[in-house]
Design a protein around this nucleic acid. Structure first.
Lengths: 220, 220
DNA sequence: GGGCTGGTGTCAGCACGGTGTCAGCGGCTG
DNA sequence: CAGCCGCTGACACCGTGCTGACACCAGCCC
């Protein structure tokens, strides 16, 4: 399990790092928010142990950026203040768990381990192509970080195209997969739904039409 | 074992402290609610012996804040009044045990010891999403630090949604998990219970409907 | 230019989910 | 023991927005 520890108090940071490594985790330690974001851009971590009070880029900001684009990385927030208000704020930012200082080290490892399980657990099939991401488990789709509000059919259609991974999918196949029953072969639902989906996806267009072939998703 | 004694009658407070120390516990003694909250913010206690009638911040308030943010700390409430009403109130606030004054000192130490054992027991599963927290072990839930008064079914439903970790849970699955027996497939209990739960959770809405999919909890 | 394929505008039906309400029941209380 | 209250689940009703058909338009290829 890959863990990133972000904590400005160096002694504590190293102590956490050593402790987690002893538990068999692969741990990187950084001391400030800027460095944290740099590492997060390079490596796919399962869990981030994040101090809330950081010099430079604040822990809240790191958390926000992480949550905006993370699908798999879990966040455990550490904080000196332990008021309810703080707890609420932390979880509100998208942290997955919260631990007020001072904490028992056994508890920290237990929680990191728990988050790791959640992260690697039935890895929800997250599909993507270009700037489009779709989380099948959560039934959420994004374009360029912007949440898309899709109807069930639109969602299923998009899922189908993304699952095809930039290959061409014929209208017949879409009909079969998304509408599953044997519909009348002259139906126009597919093109109607594609139209609505395109409208919601916005510009630039990503669903390409292959004449006599079907539809294909992708930048090209 | 770390114990915090909160009692405004100084002679009694010191007596309790001395007695518990003689039992081998690490004890801090404070005389009012404000000081209690300060200490609770600094140190991780296993058990808090809490007098209900405190000057300044009332014992109930201390208890409420404590329960909301510290899942692992157990609370033993002391009270002068020994009515059933008081007992119910205390436990309703999240206290783990209750002792009416006057009490036998041997009983106090026995109970503190018992609570300490429970405290070091495996970390209770605390679920949360956004500003909602739920302690499955103690059957209590909070929104924004505010205690929620949920019926058993409502609680189970919320627990189920939180356990799904922001993923979509179908009505069938909820029916299966919360009502466990095989109910008639056309039942409307789920939507009725969701409605009641939503009403108690208040604004902004956190339980989202996914058409033809089910329900999902989360800020997004 | 004509025919064919695919995009667009529009509209009615309806399935799905939300809401109000009521009755049964079980447990507590006096 | 009787009354009360809160939880529960059923039912009926309602509004909404999804859906799919149809008619028409635009572009491409022969």
């Amino acid at each position: 399990m890959r863990v990133l520890v972000v904590e400005d108090f160096e002694v504590l940071a190293e102590a956490i790092g050593t402790g987690l490594r002893r538990e068999g985790m692969a741990v990187d330690v950084v001391l400030d928010g800027t460095d944290a974001l740099y590492h997060l851009g390079l490596t796919r971590y399962d869990v981030v142990v994040l101090d809330r009070d950081l010099p430079g880029v604040h822990g809240d900001e790191v958390c926000r950026q992480l949550v905006a684009e993370r699908a798999h990385t879990r966040v455990l927030m550490l904080t000196a203040a332990s008021t309810v208000r703080d707890r609420v704020d932390g979880l509100g930012l998208g942290a997955d768990d919260y631990l007020p200082k001072p904490f028992d080290f056994a508890e920290l490892t237990a929680r990191v381990r728990a988050l790791g399980r959640r992260s690697s657990a039935p890895l929800p099939p997250i599909l993507s192509s270009g700037d489009i991401t779709l989380d099948a488990g959560r039934r959420i789709a994004f374009r360029a970080g912007q949440r898309l509000d899709l109807s069930p059919k639109e969602f299923a259609l998009l899922e189908c195209l993304l699952a095809a991974d930039d290959r061409v999918v014929s209208a017949e196949e879409l009909l079969e997969r998304v509408w599953d029953e044997q519909a009348d072969p002259f139906t126009t639902v597919v093109k109607t739904t594609v139209r609505r989906l395109r409208a919601k996806l916005g510009d630039p267009p990503v669903i390409h039409t292959v004449r006599e072939g079907g539809y294909r998703i992708g930048a090209g």
